[in-house]
């Protein structure tokens, strides 16, 4: 019996992560979800947050934006607009991006722009959360 999952995290820019893992925790739209191998096929949305991956007994964290996840018994495919490994997050940059997004929100924006800024805000917040958790 297969006891690993093939996890693929793909963004429009690149394939960020592709490996066999033992377990993955996703930031689902209705709360966190832990996925083990042989999960029931599931299609769901995720929100900006952190994905934690367990591989070989070690945990790995990624900051992701919102997107979609397709889960079959053997495979978890994550399609999102941002994915950064915790080690690659630049805390200062994320902090600055968050401040800039917050400043933009105060201005009057149309719906389209508000959505863009909110997404940017969520991205930077997710990065910061993942990074700070690592530091602890």
């Amino acid at each position: 019996m297969a006891n690993t999952l093939k996890l693929e995290i793909v963004t429009p820019d690149a394939v960020t992560y592709s490996d066999d893992v033992e377990m993955v925790t996703l930031p689902g739209a209705e709360g966190e979800m832990g996925i083990y191998p042989n999960h029931v096929p599931l299609m769901t949305q995720i929100v900006a947050g952190e994905i934690s991956v367990r591989k070989g007994g070690r945990d790995l964290f990624l900051a992701v934006g919102d997107g979609f996840v397709e889960i079959t018994g053997k495979r978890v495919a994550v399609m999102t607009d941002m994915a950064i490994l915790a080690d690659n997050i630049d805390e200062a940059k994320a902090e600055e991006a968050r401040r800039r997004a917050e400043a933009r929100l105060v201005e009057k924006l149309d719906d389209e722009e508000t959505a863009t800024v909110n997404a940017a805000l969520a991205h930077s917040a997710a990065q910061l959360r993942v990074k700070r958790r690592q530091g602890r």
């Binding site: 209705e30 299609m43 769901t44």
Partner: peptide, 20 residues
Amino acid sequence: GTEFLFEPGVEGVLGALLPH
């Protein structure tokens, strides 16, 4: 014939997935 579960519901997921 693999049945997929949808969370939160077929309409919600497809409604977001298709435009995207």
